[in-house]
Amino acid sequence: MADTESKALKVKEKAEVATPAEQTRPGLVFTPAADIFETDKEITLLADMPGVKAGDLNIDLHENVLTLDGFVKSPEAADEVDVIREYRTGKYYRQFTLSQVIDRGKIDAELKDGVLRLKLPKVEAARPRKIAVKSS
C-alpha cells in the first residue's frame, strides 16, 4: 500500500442507492465504501460509515446475505442555516452475499471513528487444510 500513501485524495461523491424495499423512514440512502479481504481463518470487512453511532448500526447475516444498515442523525442543530452544502447525510445500506461458510457465533463487529470493522470467521470445515505428505 506504499504507493497509495502519498497520493492526494480525490473527491468522491457518496453513492446514492435505491434500496429494494421502500424505507419506513424518509431520507437518502447511501452505499458505504467497503474493503473486503480474506485470510485462511476469516473474512474481514471494512466499511466507511461516517456519522453512524454504534447503537444505530444494524448488522444482519441471514442465509449468507450480510446486510449493513446504519442510521445517521443529522449533526446540525435546528437553528443552523446553510452556507454551503456539498455533501448530504442519510442512512447507509449495503448487502453482500458471502460465499464462504461463516461461523455465526464468532462474528465480531467494531465501529470506530466512523469505520466498521467486521470479522467473519470461517467455520472449521471451510478452512483450507494443508496435508503433509510423509515420505516413508
Binding site: 485524495l9 473527491v11 466507511d48 456519522g51 446553510d82 452556507v83 454551503i84 452544502r85 455533501y87 466512523g114
Partner: peptide, 29 residues
C-alpha cells in the same frame, strides 16, 4: 450541490454566533 472538487467535501452552516464547518472523514483521528 455546488462542489469545490477538493477533498474533503464540507458543509458550512451558521447560526447567530457561530459558523459550523463539517466534513466526513471516516477513520481519521
Amino acid at each position: 450541490e455546488p462542489m469545490a472538487g477538493v477533498f474533503p467535501l464540507m458543509n458550512v452552516t451558521e447560526d447567530k454566533d457561530n459558523y459550523y464547518v463539517r466534513a466526513e472523514l471516516p477513520g481519521l483521528k
